[in-house]
Structure formats: C-alpha cells, structure tokens
C-alpha cells in the first residue's frame, strides 16, 4: 500500500515516526479496504477492459479510438465546456468568498449551511428542474412572455449545459476558497498594511497567494466532474450534444465495455494531467497537497 501513497511532506513524515506509528497506521485500514474495493479494483478492471478486445487479447485499438473525429469532437467540446464552467465558477466564487469572509458572521456554519442547502436534493432532480425552467414553454419563458420580454431559448444548447455545470458545481468552488480565506491570519494582513502595502498589493502579494490552495482544490473539484459528466449534458443538451462522458456512457450501455473503458482511460489521462499541473502550482503556494 505504501508505494501508492501520496508523497508526504517532510513535516508530516516525521510525525509518523513516533513510536505509535503502527497503531496509527491501523486506523487507515477501513479507508484502505474502501479504496481497494471501490477505487483500485474498478480501476484495474477498466485498465484490463481498455487494453483488450472482445477475444481478451491485448490491443491499443480502444485507446486509438480517441482519434476518430466523433470522439475528438466530444473530447474537445467536453474540455471547452468544463474550462468555461470552471472559469465562471471561479469568477463567481472568489468575490463571493471575500464578501462572506468580510461580513465576519458570528458563526460561519450558517454560510456553509446556505451553500450546502441545495445539495440536500439529488443533483439529477435539480438538473431536471432546470430543464423545466429553461424549456421553450418552461417557467422562465412563461414569466418573460407575461412581462412582454423576449424569450430565452438556450435549452438543448451548450449554453444550457454550462449553466447546469456552474449551478451544480459552484458550491465545490465556494467552500474551499472560503475555508482558506477565513483561516488567513488577520495579523499577516495588518503587517502588510503596516509595512506600507495598499489594498491591491495586500491582495496580490498576501491574500491571493495564501488562498491559492483553496482555489486549486476548487478548480479540481469543478473541472474534473464537469469534464466527465454525462447526466447534465444529456438532460440539458437534449442528447443532441455529445460530450466525452456521453460517448463513454453510450459505449457501456450499448454493451461495448472495451471501447468504453479505452476512452475512459484517455479521459483519465486528461484528469491526471490537470491535477499534475494544479499540484505544481499548489506546491509553489506551499499549501497542503491535494493528492
């Protein structure tokens, strides 16, 4: 198990060298069993299916299938839409987190409560609700027609999918950024002020660099699910817009597990690439490692 463990930074490494190491290690067993059963074994199976054909002989065909125009288009579109959604989430979340932080409510559990509240309902239901809102004769357009305003027809377009992604994943961006911001020591900011930094300088030199770990985990938590989603795109895109997730889902439901696994492996490369790039920035910010 040890070799798959993420690199620990030196400080926590020395922490594990205490005499109680073994007993502490025992505590990780439930998680290790969980990880083996629900992460490692499925991954190995995907790897096996992805690299074999129906006769169970080794092939790279399933991976090469990504080069087909349909699949390339789906991958390109998935990357584009998830990048746009991530950027929108970031633009919305950062100022909001700063505002929430500045309000300094007595208990920040209220804020977390409000942000998490929508998540009490299943995300598929909320996405279907958006479908009803955005439809041609849906809630939004009925209201607009009533007010004699022009109607909005974005259902079954990429714009609706982006809306769905932003709506669903926004809390995953707000919470990590907010959590990092509230932990920034006010004294550090005061010190910067004392030493003559203006508001902008305090932000660019102190607050933003210190909040980077939150931003990084926020980006990961929005970008990765957006890239792989198939539910949002089929509900809000009317199954007319195929993202990578839809292509993979289709391969699996139509019974071609080998092709589906091959394409999943390709998608995984992109996810890992994204996380590798982000963790590099993360280290520069000297934050805690996200993987």
């Amino acid at each position: 198990m040890n070799d798959t463990k993420p690199k620990l930074n030196p400080s926590s490494d020395s922490g594990l060298m205490l005499p109680h190491t073994n007993r502490i290690k025992l505590l990780s067993f439930p998680y290790i069993i969980w990880m083996a059963g629900f992460i490692i074994i499925p991954l190995v199976m995907i790897l096996f299916y992805g690299l074999t054909n129906k006769e169970n002989s080794f092939t790279l065909e399933n991976l090469a299938a990504i080069a087909e125009p349909i699949n390339l288009q789906a991958l390109g579109l998935a990357l584009l839409l998830s990048i746009i959604s991530t950027v929108i989430c970031l633009i919305l979340s950062y100022p909001l987190s700063i505002i929430l932080n500045n309000i300094k409510l007595k208990s920040n559990s209220l804020i977390i409560f409000i942000i998490i509240l929508p998540m009490w309902m299943n995300f598929l239901l909320r996405t279907i609700a958006w479908q009803n809102i955005l439809e041609k004769s849906g809630t939004l357009n009925t209201l607009l027609t009533f007010l004699h305003l022009p109607t909005i027809n974005i259902i079954n377009t990429p714009a609706a999918i982006i809306l769905g992604m932003v709506y669903n994943y926004l809390p995953f961006m707000i919470l990590p950024i907010y959590n990092v911001l509230i932990k920034i020591d006010q004294d550090v900011i005061n010190a910067a002020r004392d030493l003559g930094a203006n508001t902008l300088q305090t932000f660019t030199k102190i607050i933003f660099p210190l909040s980077l770990p939150g931003v990084i985990s926020g980006i990961t938590m929005v970008f990765v699910p957006s890239l792989t989603t198939f539910a949002i795109s089929s509900i809000l895109g009317g199954s007319k817009i195929l993202l990578m997730g839809n292509v993979i889902e289709q391969q699996f439901t139509l019974g071609n597990w080998h092709a589906g696994s091959g394409l999943s492996l390709v998608l995984m490369i992109f996810v890992l690439l994204c996380m590798a790039i982000l963790s590099k920035y993360d280290k520069e910010a000297e934050g805690s490692n996200i993987w």
Binding site: P69, I70, Q73, A74, S239, K240, I241, L242, V247, Q250, L254, G255, N256
Partner: peptide
Amino acid sequence: LEAFYNDEWNKVKSGT
C-alpha cells in the same frame, strides 16, 4: 451488425 448500427448512430448523434 449491432456494432455497425451503433457506430452509425453515434455519427448521427454527434452532429457531424
């Protein structure tokens, strides 16, 4: 043929 139908249908659905 099942696979052929599926591939052709994917072409339709991708809009290319």
